[in-house]
Design a binder for these strands. Structure first.
Lengths: 135, 135
DNA sequence: TTACATAGTGTTATATTATAACAACTAAAA
DNA sequence: TTTTAGTTGTTATAATATAACACTATGTAA
């Protein structure tokens, strides 16, 4: 019982919630996830938040901080949630994960005034997506 | 009555709240601000949030999205909240605004796969500050 | 196998962060 | 003076997130 998901060792709740987020074309919010998985036996916010925390930790999903929403990682190179970058359209709210080696190298090597390197970053760009620009 | 703050046309509430944040060495959260300004007549969350919204809009303060906290802008070049970058220490929670022309130029010129430029960004680096590294 | 450690679950209650709606007031400009 | 846009004060409530506790499942090592 409670078999782990083969590919990534997800538990039942984690898998239910990951699958929902993964199928979604846009970021999902915690309580919207909750409403969508209640028929599958996940009844309380904490069950959702715990799964989300774990999924973020292992890099299967990312949190869009400015939106309090969660998106599946489609960037094969990001095994852990340590270097994330997104574009966010301020009209249609479409969020896209950026996978630019130039950008990630630049940021991974960034040092502050004291010469300190930082182990993680999260970058969010805001503006208009192509579709909304053309309207 | 209700004189504007000379330098930046802040209203009374905006000035009270800006002064508090500006004096603080670390980011402040909305409800912590509320408790600190109740003696000055600001009694309700909305009064705080409205002032915060305005101060963010005009670039006098920035929101640290990953912490739901607000910090005064000490970067003379950032008149508007359109290009922000911070380092955040995961131990002591010290937050520092980065003012690196190299970084800001790099990010301001970033284009996504479709060649789209974005009008705003927010970047948060996480790691250890110098002090915490030495401990 | 048993014992142990680690991690996940289900549950209730509650804390924290943020906004809706509405009436009134203020400041600046036409 | 009238209008306009923005801010204020207020009550209520929505949305986001965690504390605490008892219990269950799984992996590992004696």
């Amino acid at each position: 019982m409670n078999k782990m998901h083969k590919e990534h060792n997800l538990t039942k709740n984690q898998k239910i919630i990951f699958d929902l987020i993964d199928k979604s074309s846009q970021p999902l919010k915690a309580y919207s996830i909750l409403y969508n998985v209640q028929k599958k036996g996940i009844k309380a916010p904490l069950q959702v938040y715990r799964a989300l925390d774990k999924l973020v930790e292992i890099g299967k999903i990312h949190k869009i901080e400015s939106r309090n929403a969660f998106i599946a990682c489609h960037n094969s190179s990001c095994q852990v949630a340590k270097a994330t970058a997104f574009t966010i359209c301020e009209i249609c709210e479409k969020v896209t994960e950026i996978s630019s080696t130039g950008l990630s190298k630049y940021l991974a090597n960034f040092k502050d005034k004291d010469g300190m390197k930082y182990s993680k970053y999260n970058l969010e760009f805001f503006g208009l997506c192509k579709k909304c620009t053309l309207k």
